[in-house]
Each structure stands twice: as C-alpha cells, then as structure tokens.
Nucleic acid binder design. Structure first.
Length: 888
RNA sequence: AGGCGCGUAGCUCAGGGGGAGAGCGCUACCUUGACACGGUAGAGGUCACGGGUUCAAAUCCCGUCGUGCCUACCA
C-alpha cells in the first residue's frame, strides 16, 4: 500500500528541504488518483471550477493566491469527507493568443493575411500544443489538487458545441441581435471591444474652442471639443433648449469649418449649459452620446475615421491621414481660417484597449450584441434572494451597481482565433441563417451560395459557460447532476463583471439555477508598497522564483495568512522568509517527535492516566480544530492560518513538546509509552490540521509517522470529538505557565544565566492551586530551571530574593549573591506603577453610579474581580518594596 | 462626478462597544541532546484629527485631512 515506507527509519535532515519532497508527493497523489472525486455515492459533493488561466499566461501572483485558496478549500473538504471535484482547464484568450502568434509571424517577416485564415488557425493550435500547457505545469508546482483527467479547454469540441448551442438559442430568443451601433474599436488589434474591455485613463489634453460660422448671418457659434478631427463627421451642433444665449437659433444652420457643409443647430437638454460654451458638436458616427442624440434627432451618421485609424474619403482633404496627424492639420487650417478660438489645458479620461493600451476609437459598426437586460434582471435577483452569496458581501453592491447599469454586450470580434460565429449569409437573397451546424442551402431561396460570418466571439462568451460546459452541457451528464451548481467560485474582483456576472446570467438562463452557491472574492496581490505588480513598474515578484527559494509550503502559507477579506495583499520576500521559518519549525518538531517514536507502540490512551500536558494539548487541539473549521467555512483564510501558526508554534512546540520531554526521557517505561502515544496522537492531529495549507511537508511527515495509513489527503480533518476534552487542564496549565513565566521573567530581568539553577519558594494560599502546583512541580523545575522548589504559605519576602506576584501567588526566586537590591527595587517599582495605572481605571469605573446601574452585571462583576485581584497584587508588591527599603 | 476601502508598535497588518494584539525588525542573555530558519526575557502605541451617541468608543454615527481602488457617455 504505502510506497515510501523505506524511509521511515532514516534520519531526518536538520533543515527541511522542499525540493526533495514536493515533486515526489505530487506524483504520488496523481498516480494514486487522489485528485479525482470519490466514486462513493454516499459522500456529499463539493465542486469548484478553476478560473481558467489563459494559455498565453505564465504563473503570476494572482494565479498563485487564487489557486492556493482553492486548493486549501478542496483539500479541506476532501478530508472532511466530501466528494470533491476541482475542475481545471484553460482559456483560449482570443486577442492575447492571436497577438502572440502574430508577433511570431512578424518576426519571420510575414503576417496572418499572407498565410491565410486556415493556416493561421493551424499555427495557433501548434503554438498551443507547444506552450499552452506551461501554466498547468506551474499550477501543479503549487500543489493544486485539480482532477487533471478532466482538464478542459475553451476551444475543445465539447465546449465549442456548448458555445454554438447557446448562441443559437439566444438568437432564437431574440437575446442576440446584429446591428449598427457605436462600438469601441481598437485600431491595433483590428477588432471591436466590449465596453468592459476599455480602460479609462486620465490624460492631459486640450479643450479646443472652434468657431462654426452661421450660414445666413454674421458671426459664429463656438463649440468646445477635445477631438477636433471628428468635426469632419459632425452633422449638427446642439445647445440646451433652456439656454438663453441660444434661444433665437431655432431653425438656423451653421457651416462646418473646412468642409463648409451646412449643419443644423438642434436643441437637446442633454447639453450642459455650464460646460465650455454650452454648444456641443454632434458626431453620431464617432461618439456614443452623439450617436444617441443623433438617433433622437434623426441625424445623418457620417463616418470619417476608418477601422485602421486613418481618415477616409468622407474626410475631404484629410483623406488617408492618421487620426492624430489629422488633428494637427485641422488645427492648423482652423487657425489660418481664423476659426480657432482659445485652447485650454484639459484633463479627461480617454479609453484605451485593455490588451494593447492603444487609444480606442469609438465608431459606427455592424456588430453582434447580447441583449443583457433580461438576463441581468435574474442575475440580480439571484444574489438578492441569496441563491448565490457573495463573500465578502460588500462586493454585492458593486455587482448590483454594474448589473443595474448594464448595456448590451458587443460579442463579435474581428479576429481569427476563437469560436466563429455560427451565422451564414445567403449571397443570393441576403438571408441570415443562425444554426448549430453549417446549413447546405438557404432556407429562404434554396441557394447554396452561403458565406459564414467572418467574426469570432468574445472570449468571455465561452468563459461565461465554463461552470456547465466543462461538466458536459448541453448533454445531461452525471457530472452536471452531481456537481452543478458548483459550491464556490474563488476569484479576484477584477473579473467580477467580465466573468462572474456573465456566468451568473448564462447559468441561470440555461440551467435554471445559479452556477455557484458562493462567490468568494479575494484580494489583489500588490508589492510591499501597495502598488499593483506589473512588468512596466518592474516590481514583479515571480512566484516561480519564490517557489524555488522558499518552497511551496512556505509560499502557500504566506498567501493564506495574508488573504484578509476586503484588503489587498502586500507581499514581500521578508514575509515569505518568515513563514519559511515556520515550515522549518514544523519540520523540526516532527523530527523531534519521530526521534522519540522509533520504538513506539500503536497509540492508545485507554486505561492510562494522562499527564497534564497530554490532557491540555489534546483539549487545545480539539478547540483549535473547531476554530479552524469555522474560519475556513467563513473563508477567513488568514484567521485559519494564523490560528494554526499560533497553536503549532506557541502551544505545541513551546509548551507541549517541552513538557513531554520529561516523560520521554523518563526511565519509567510506562511513562515513556504514554507520552509516545500522546505524541503520535497530537502530531497526527497537527499535520492533518495543517495539511490543507502546507500539503507537501505534512504528507512527508505523515508518511514517516508510525501507525498511519495511506496518504494524508484521505485522512480525516481533526475535529474536537476525536480528542479528549478537559476544561480544567486549561486552567491548570495557565497557572503553571504563570508561575513558570514569573520565574523566567525574574531570570531575564535580573540577568541570571540560563545555565544557573535557582532556588524557588512559592507562597500560595488556595488549596486547589496548591494541589495543582504540587502535582506538577517537575514541569516548573524543568521549564524554569529551578534547582529546588519549596511550597509555603504566608511568609515574608525572603532575604535576597526577587519576587513575582501572580494573582495571590507569590513566586520568590532566591538570589543570594546574584541580585542587587537596587535592581529588584526598580523592577518592583516599575510593576507597581503599571498596576496602579490599571487600578485607577477600575476604581473610577466602580465609583461611577451610572456604570454600576447601567452596565451589564457580568461586566461590573468583571471589573470588581479585576480590581480585587489588582488590589491583592498591589498589596504584595508594596509589602515587598517595604521589605527592600528596610534592607537598604 | 459618484461608489467602495484604508489610516492601530519602527515596518506589514489582525481586531472591531467593557483594560491594545501578531509577524518581521529592535535590545539583552543563551550553541540546554527538534530547531540559531532556534530559545528566554524585554523595550515600543493619545488606535489620523475634530465633534457626537453611550455608564463605557480604537471599535458605532457625522465631519475634516491624508491615501488607495473601482465605476462613469459631460464635449
């Protein structure tokens, strides 16, 4: 069964070496089918679809965080007994991929038009075969436990079928249409873009005041514009009907500068009287607002800029010029003609292509659109009524805001790489045929002279189907029945609209149910100064380099700890280095345990009397498991990871292991055996607790831990009920820690060398405390390095002692020859000042009648108790001080 | 222009009505048989500022300042 048993007895290296471990266990998991959903039908399903990375992509921090969180959830759920499907795959990334291959062509002195569409597509597929899987290999290095046997690609035959099905059905339902509208055109990518794909960037520009002479009288109407070159396509000048200045212009015309075309002055309340001159030039073919105004006033649309960014034959003398060159020339000509007024510096947002950052040209074009209104309505409702929960919930507002103001989605792209739109045009009668399969003849005129639409679909169109197309839709598959709706979608907010919103619309429309129950929105990863990582800034931390330097587990744990809801992550290498130390700490704790388990029996605590350390740590690990369970359930990854960190380092290592040493090094075989049992039980719990976060090191330890079976991946996540629970052990341990802490504090403050044993006298009144301390003296002796401990009651501060007051317990450390009275007095005075400040607060509260009458009783009680305790402590401290004063 | 955050130890950040927390860094001591990628102890904070609500505010409300991001068709 177990393949790596041969290593169990070999010594563990002093330092954890991730490289030797990671590849080995990843292969083992994959080979043993541990990433596949369970075939047992009694398990509840849990499913996640991966946000498919682009085939052009290389692992960046966003991927690393995103997939680490998904993997934590999946590993955790598997251990909790769910049948887990983590559905992986990649996205064909139309424009990005086409750009990559085109760049390659251009470096070889050719381009896609020379080689033709068919050959080009072939080349893209070849490129994809060669390089498209790179990111998958990288995801594996992260430890991602996806079911790779089910890997999908958005251009797969199955997914393409889903795309055609959806397109045809939406078309039949009149939710897809084709028409002439203003769209965003990227002259470099040569394609239309959706509104979302335009990034608005503030830029310094100018506001030009241009004079349009009146046709039939003297003078002119001055308009203000940022884009003088579009005036060639103006078909009106608009003013506000309520603008006193322009009241008398009704029915008049102005002459378009340069071209001298008469255009009407129209009235529209859209125009802002306050802006510029209150007169707005209208270019319906090159501006979305002007387009709308043009529609209401039935203005002609004159397109003057072509798709390649150059002026066309409507541009008169400027025909053939680049759009930016044209602007300069027009300004020159206007100036010469005396038609250019003032020029003001002006800052405004300009649209750029999100892929190539080229300035977007809004222009009139015939494109395909999705009518999203009706789809959005239901997608909004689904979140409103809780069918899908967005976590953290403040993103709901953003989601509603966008959904409520959504405009139709332009889905056609003038590129070659992608799903070709399943529409055919009859060359004889002009009929448009939309069908899943290529039609032979025109249903209208029976002609076979049909031409398929050249355009392909927006990549996000196929991504929108991802949660069901990957599960086999439109076929009614078992996977769909079992795993749809998926349990949770894990993603960053930057694709909330691009992807999440569209999946919601499509999932609800075609499956009748939401695509996921939860959407967990995680942070963006920024650099240590809070800036977005980008190549141009040069502040990228390469996750692959991190993996090499620090190991996967350290990296994953760092990401988990930093994954705070609603706040971006500032990643620094120091931070990762810090958690690498934690990984090493785990390693060494395990190393210590395993060294002491060489001769151990199968763990059992039946019939043995357990030590305080055992009862305490088991109680604690049960509580911690419960906390971590709750944190993961609420997607509070940082809390879950921090809780683990705190527990493992500062309870398991700092206290439990130190206490266990006494038993393990005992000559009494029975005591040793009990301790070994405890050690096995607790270490097993610890690695299982940690596994979802740090899968590799925990598997390595698990495999070396005696009396475990199979992979840790299929072990159970620890839960409270599997451990004994003993509340008293917590109190008892707190008491011990307090006393030990007191002695250590004195040692530290008094600079007593750790080597040097000290004699301790403990003055304790309460009989229970007394019993507890008495029963556990050996822990104090050992952990505080005491030579001897005497338990007394009601004595004065001994000669040459330093005293630590813990509640009403006084711990006197005898320091003959080690202490000078001045130091001890300073120490006590410092303590007294601190306590007095605290006392003061409590006294003030208790003196306040309103507090006593209105605060909840338990709070009042609390303050009273505190005051009492502080009082006792203060009294003791003062007594001790008095004694010192006498001596000096 | 609107919307959403953030401002807490030197740094990075948790917390979120009832006596300020972590990691890193810093200081001192320590190579004790898991770990110097370690141990023990310690220093360090008017919780941005101003109001308000409350018996009680770092925490809730309003405002100011600073800062980041998102959305948007004012030329």
């Amino acid at each position: 069964m177990r393949e790596w048993n041969f290593m169990e007895n070999s010594a563990l290296a002093k330092t954890y070496e991730p490289k030797e471990v990671e590849q080995k266990w990843y292969d083992y998991w994959e080979k043993n089918d541990l990433f596949k959903p369970s075939t047992k039908s009694d398990k509840s399903p849990f499913s996640i679809v991966i946000p498919p990375p682009n085939i052009t992509g290389s692992l960046h921090m966003g991927h690393a965080l995103n997939n680490t969180l998904q993997d934590i959830l999946c590993r955790y759920k598997r251990m909790k007994g769910y049948s887990v499907l983590w559905q992986p795959g990649t996205d064909h990334a139309g424009i990005a991929t086409q750009n990559v291959v085109e760049k390659d062509l251009s470096s070889r002195g050719t381009d896609r038009h020379q080689i033709g569409r068919e050959r080009f597509i072939e080349l893209v597929w070849e490129w994809r075969e060669k390089f498209g899987g790179m990111i998958i290999t990288q995801l594996k290095r992260l430890g991602s436990s996806c079911d790779w046997s089910r890997e999908r690609f958005t251009m797969d035959e199955g997914l393409s079928r889903a795309v055609r099905e959806v397109f045809v059905r939406l078309y039949d339902e009149k939710l897809i249409y084709r028409g002439d509208y203003i769209i965003n055109w990227c002259p470099r990518c040569d394609t239309a873009l959706a509104d979302l794909e335009v990034e608005h960037e503030e830029m310094d520009s100018h506001l030009y005041y241009i004079r349009y002479p009146f046709e039939n009288r003297h003078g002119y109407l001055t308009v203000a514009t940022t884009r003088p070159e579009t005036l060639l396509g103006d078909t009106a000048v608009a003013v506000n009907p309520e603008d006193e200045r322009y009241r008398d212009l009704s029915g008049s015309y102005v002459l378009l500068p340069v071209l001298n075309r008469p255009i009407p002055v129209i009235f529209d309340k859209y125009v802002d009287k306050e802006f510029g001159t209150g007169a707005l030039k209208i270019t319906p073919a090159h501006d979305p607002n002007d387009f709308e105004i043009g529609n209401t006033h039935q203005l002609e649309r004159i397109k003057v800029i072509n798709e390649d960014g150059h002026m066309n034959d409507q541009a008169g003398p400027y025909q053939g010029m680049d759009r930016f060159e044209c602007r300069e020339r027009i300004l020159d000509d206007l100036k010469k003609a005396g038609l250019l007024g003032k020029i003001e510096p002006y800052r405004h947002a300009v649209g750029h292509c999100y892929r190539c950052k080229t300035m977007i040209e809004p222009l009139l074009s015939k494109q395909w659109f999705v009518r999203v209104g009706p789809l959005a309505e239901r997608a909004i409702a689904a979140v409103k009524n809780g069918e899908t929960r967005i976590v953290p919930s403040n993103w709901e507002g953003v989601y509603y805001e966008w959904m409520n103001n959504i405009r139709d989605w332009c889905i056609s792209r003038q590129i070659w790489w992608g799903h070709r739109i399943p529409a055919w045009y009859c060359q004889e009668c002009g009929e448009v045929i939309v069908a899943k399969e290529e039609p032979r003849v025109c249903p209208c005129c029976k002609s076979n002279n049909l031409r398929q639409e050249q355009d392909v679909l927006d990549t996000w169109f196929s991504s929108a189907l991802w949660p069901f197309s990957t599960l086999g839709w439109p076929d009614s598959t078992d996977e769909l029945k079992t795993f749809y709706p998926t349990s949770v979608l894990v993603t960053a907010f930057d694709i909330l609209f691009f992807w999440v919103a569209r999946m919601m619309m499509m999932g609800i429309h075609f499956l009748g149910d939401v695509p996921f129950r939860d959407v967990y929105i995680h942070a963006l990863v920024k650099d240590e100064r809070g800036q977005k990582m980008s190549k141009s800034r040069g502040n990228i931390i390469d996750p692959l380099e991190v993996l090499d330097r620090f190991g996967t587990d350290a990296f994953r744990f760092t990401l988990a700890v930093l994954a705070i809801q609603g706040r971006d992550i500032r990643l620094s290498e120091e931070r990762i280095a810090g958690y690498k130390n934690f990984i090493n700490k785990i390693w060494n704790a395990a190393r210590f345990c395993l060294m002491n388990l060489k001769d151990c029996k199968s763990p059992s605590i039946e019939g043995y009397s357990l030590t305080l350390a055992d009862r305490w740590i088991m109680t604690r690990i049960g509580e911690v498991a419960e906390e971590v369970t709750s944190h993961i359930g609420g997607y509070r990854f940082n809390e879950a990871a921090s809780t683990c960190y705190q527990f493992v380092w500062h309870e398991f290592c700092d206290w439990y292991l130190e206490m266990a040493k006494l038993e393990l090094y005992s000559k009494d075989q029975m005591r040793r055996e009990v301790a070994q049992s405890g050690l096995q039980i607790v270490l097993s719990g610890v690695v299982r607790l940690l596994h979802p976060f740090v899968p590799f090191i925990t598997e390595e330890i698990w495999q070396r831990l005696p009396h475990t079976e199979g992979s840790i991946m299929v072990a159970h996540f620890p839960q409270r009920s599997e451990f004994i629970h003993d509340d008293e052990s917590i109190e008892e341990t707190d008491l011990l820690k307090g006393v030990i802490g007191g002695i250590r504090n004195i040692r530290g403050e008094m600079n007593i060398p750790p080597r040097r044993d000290v004699r301790v006298v403990i003055d304790v009144k309460g009989s229970r405390e007394r019993e507890i301390l008495k029963d556990n003296l050996h822990y104090i002796t050992s952990l505080a390095k005491a030579e001897s401990i005497e338990m007394v009651y009601g004595i004065e501060k001994p000669d040459s002692s330093a005293t630590y007051v813990f509640g009403d317990i006084q711990v006197h450390v005898l320091l003959k020859g080690l202490i000078n009275y001045g130091d001890e007095r300073n120490r006590i005075c410092k303590e007294i000042r601190k306590i007095e400040r605290e006392m003061d607060l409590s006294r003030r509260k208790l003196a306040n009648k309103d507090f006593l009458s209105q605060a909840p009783p338990h709070i009042v009680e609390n303050v009273k108790e505190r005051a009492e305790l502080l009082g006792v402590k203060l009294e003791r401290l003062n007594q001790n001080l008095a004694i010192l004063e006498e001596l000096t």
